[in-house]
């Protein structure tokens, strides 16, 4: 479904990805793990088009992605829930959700999708008319994920959905994502710091280090692999 080969990308000439090969099958859930600064976010941005690739190729359903503008990629079904939530703070929760269904296929299914996301994240149901900026961190993250789900994604990319959240709030997010995956068949990429939670909801995982793929394995294998902890903290646990 998504095929990346030999991808190099970076900011202001500083490389963040060095020759990354990466693929996601139809309906597959993939975790990207690795220490901060390893290039995980850059990889997602290169896929959604907000960071330009220096070389290499990305194709989605056998069509070249790199030649397409970011909004065309969303139309194709690639939906990115960015790090730091990026809620439209001055707009209501309902308007945020409505912007989520900006993709043309999703526009007609707005009401149906809204019912779905409110089922996944019941906490949002009572605050549709509140401004996004007035929500707590956890609620904002729910809204960010919900906004992505509104677009009927074919490939949903979640960047650090638990970042900066208290453990309880992070648990709520992961429970919601798990509920979503029960009903949806969308493919998914999760970038996540909390390795256990990410591996729990994914089939397979990549570990990035210094912009290169250091490890690739099934979730089960990785959960038992001490090298993962070493990659993060450099110490044996």
């Amino acid at each position: 479904m998504l095929e990346i080969s030999d991808l190099c990308a970076g900011y202001d000439g500083v490389p963040a990805l060095r020759s990354v090969d990466f693929r996601v099958g139809r309906g597959e859930r993939v975790a990207i793990l690795g220490p901060n600064g390893a290039g995980k976010t850059t990889l997602l941005k290169a896929i959604s088009g907000t960071v330009a690739a220096d070389s290499g190729s990305i194709s989605f359903e056998d069509r070249d992605l790199l030649s397409q503008a970011p909004h065309r990629r969303v139309e194709a079904g690639i939906v990115h829930v960015p790090q730091g939530r990026m809620i439209f703070a001055s707009m209501t929760v309902a308007d945020n959700l409505r912007l989520g269904s900006h993709r043309s296929i999703a526009r007609d299914r707005h009401d149906e999708r809204r019912d779905l996301v409110l089922e996944i994240f019941p906490a949002l149901a009572g605050m549709l008319n509140r401004d996004g900026g007035a929500l707590s961190g956890g609620q904002q993250q729910m809204l960010a994920v919900a906004r992505g789900v509104m677009a009927c994604p074919r490939l949903l990319m979640l960047d650090e959905p638990s970042m900066g959240l208290a453990p309880r709030a992070a648990d709520d997010i992961f429970e919601g994502i798990a509920r979503l995956l029960e009903s949806e068949t969308t493919a998914m990429i999760v970038v996540e710091q909390r390795a256990h939670e990410a591996l729990h909801i994914c089939d397979r995982a990549f570990v990035l280090e210094s912009g290169e793929v250091a490890l690739e394995a099934t979730s089960r294998e990785l959960l038992a692999d001490e090298r993962l902890a070493a990659a993060y903290l450099g110490a044996e646990i």
Binding site: S162, Q193, R194, A195, E197, H200, A229, L233, G234
Partner: peptide
């Protein structure tokens, strides 16, 4: 510090 349970939890999650 890197073997402190609180630090490991912060990096890898409580369930780890």
């Amino acid at each position: 510090v890197v073997s402190d349970p609180g630090v490991i939890e912060a990096y890898l999650g409580s369930k780890w």
